Amino acid sequence: MSAMDTDEPQGVVLSSGAQSGLSLSLHPLPILNISEHLTRLKLQTNSNSPFVLGALLGTQNGREVEIVNTFELAVEPGGELVDHGFLVSRRDQCEPFQCHSQLSDDDPFADKQVFPSLEFIGWYTVAPRPTPRHIALHEQFTGYCSTPLLLILQPSITLVASSDVNAQNLPFKAYEPTIELRDRKSRSVFIEVPYNVETGEAERIAVDWTARGGGSGTSLESHLQTQRAAVKMLHDRIMVLVKYVTDVVAGQAPKDHATLRSLSALIASLPATENNAFREEFETEYEDVQLTAFLSSLTKSANILNDLVDKHLVMTSGGNGERGPGGPRRRGMGMGMNRDRDWDRH
């Protein structure tokens, strides 16, 4: 089915002069879901153009439509037919009860609604443009929705930088199905539907949280990951220079004296890390850091042990031990002071 993207255009999209009367809003979650679906299939199939197919969930009020969420779909062996059993099971989990009230109380999907306020409103795929095969796929969804929308992710589209969140600067295009009459014959075609990106407060927080790395770790971890990426980039560039010099020495690359002079000046500006005085100072600093960490750990262990001894003495005294103005005397602290006096005498 991946050959869908290679079909010659058959004019299944009406010219730009035709306009749709839909007012379409696209939420961020479907954008993230479809992008993740494509990326995952690329890695799983080791293909740059895997067949991506999924359903769109949203709400429709007259000619106002919102695409709020998605779920993935399966296809029959051969890739030409949608797995309708899988689609129905997923749809029944998401749609409100009143849309499929024929479900009995014993039905496994009767109490497992995931998105009870959403309904099936269309499907999505990945392709450069709609083709006749998309028309054939579209007809398989008309039994679930009278006019299912089509949302296409176009990874190869040229993006235009814009600060306007509602501008059509995303690699997505939405299409509404319609019927065209030509030469006394009718055929199914698509009309492109302009859309706005609708973002609620909760979605803005979630998208920002995802962009910042989500729950992947603390700010220190994020900083270390940034540093690691920078070091890796530096290493890659150094390896390019090393390979160039190696090829020049081996006679496999022409000599560029300007480049070689720049490399020589760069090497001369580097610190002499193999100098004996540097190594000695570095090892001293390293030992000091290690000793500080060891002393910190030892102090923490001593404090824990002292608290344990105090609790043990309180429990074993049975209330008969010497008591001070504030309760039982902290014998552990006294023992520690006696030990200090013994060490001073030595």
Rank of each mutant, 00 (worst) to 15 (best):
S104Y: 07
Q140D: 04
R91Q: 07
Q93C: 11
Q154N: 14
E180Y: 01
G213H: 06
V197M: 08
P128E: 07
S219D: 10
A136Q: 08
P155S: 09
W123D: 00
T199R: 13
S186L: 09
F190Y: 06
A127I: 02
G214K: 03
V189H: 00
H138G: 05
D111L: 14
F109Y: 12
T178M: 02
V114G: 09
R129D: 00
V114M: 10
D105V: 10
R187H: 03
Q93W: 07
V160Q: 15
T158P: 06
Q140G: 02
I205D: 14
I157C: 08
P155I: 03
F172W: 05
I179G: 02
W123Q: 00
H100A: 08
Y175V: 00
R182G: 02
A167I: 09
P155Y: 00
P108N: 10
E139V: 06
P96Q: 02
Q102L: 10
G200Y: 09
E180V: 05
P108M: 04
Y195P: 03
K173Q: 13
P96F: 05
Y124F: 13
P194D: 06
Q113K: 11
P132H: 04
N166E: 11
P132C: 01
D111E: 14
T147W: 07
L137E: 01
F172Y: 11
E119L: 11
S101V: 03
P148S: 05
P108H: 06
V126C: 05
T218F: 05
L151G: 03
L103C: 07
F172I: 05
T131M: 04
K173P: 03
A202L: 12
H100V: 05
S146A: 10
P155E: 00
T218Q: 04
A161Q: 15
E95T: 11
S117D: 15
S156G: 15
K185H: 09
N166S: 15
Y124M: 07
L150W: 00
S162M: 11
P155F: 01
E119S: 14
P132L: 05
A211Y: 08
T178F: 03
G213E: 07
R133G: 07
S101P: 04
E192W: 02
A211L: 12
F109M: 14
R133Y: 06
W123P: 01
